[in-house]
Amino acid sequence: MQRWIAWAVLLAVVASVGVAGAAPSRPRLAMILPGVIQDADFNAVGYQALKEVQATTGVQTAHSEQVAVADAERVAREYLASGYGIVAFHGGQYLTIVQKLAPLFPDAVFIMESSGQIPNLPPNVWNIGRKFHEGFYVLGVLAALSTKTNRIGYVAGIRLPDFVASLNAVFQAVAKYNPRAEVLYTFVGDQNDPVKARQAAESQIAAGVDFIVISVNLGTVGILEAARAARRPVLLTTFYTDKSSYAPQHFAASLLSNFGKPYVEVTRQILAGKRGGYYEMRPGSGFGLTPPRNVPPEVARRVQQVWRAVVLRQERVDEITDRVVERR
């Protein structure tokens, strides 16, 4: 009997030592962010995702904010030199750096974001493709069904393929659900300039717009001011985070983005050994819609129906990124 116990104890000790010794030290994850995490917008959700990764997978994390593209390579190299095994870039503007660094550091894994599947990526790169336009389609439906003046506004910053696709999705939605309505759009040139955003919104409101689909980040507060200063009720939608607390009577819905979902999933895959791949972030897997408010209940119900249809791919949204298609 004693011999059995001794063998059992020895086995247990060996097993635990073996496990502790053989368990590979978990790679650490560093995230590079283009802006500040207190923006309650794109960077805040990135930071939230990072925290979620740490909480759910136990991977140690670090981050750098306000990393301009010109500095991102240097920042990434510093992380890699400090032993971080996973470097994540929150934003599509870092593609070129990932393409450059990934072959140079084959032992590390890189996570990047873009608007779709990119061909010929190195094998140690995970690509999160963000399909914003599918979410904006539903916002377009909400706008189409809620507008009383039949004039809908769209305010975006830089004329990027993502936003062009979102604008086209709004056009598609309006053409289908309210063909009499007109869509007025302005690209103000800066995602984070509230002054320009306000001026653009005021111009649109003066032209009769009563529902604005917002596609700027920090510029949102400017559009909010324009809505508050307007002589008749104006409804707004935003994206990334729910900003309705700024002025509850003006917000109709927000397209929420939960980057935690893609990042946790991708991290899990990396830990399981899959060092490269593609994850599509779309309504239902990363994008969510707040329940519509300040609109009639039947409109809210209809919109949520459309959302579910988009999630299940029963309702298809075209993706046109190179030019604006005004009428369908």
């Binding site: 800066d190 984070n192 509230p194 306000r198 920090l218 507060v221 400017g222 001011e225």
Partner: peptide, 8 residues
């Protein structure tokens, strides 16, 4: 204008 401060 906006009730906020941004760098630019």
């Amino acid at each position: 204008l906006t009730g906020t401060f941004t760098e630019g």
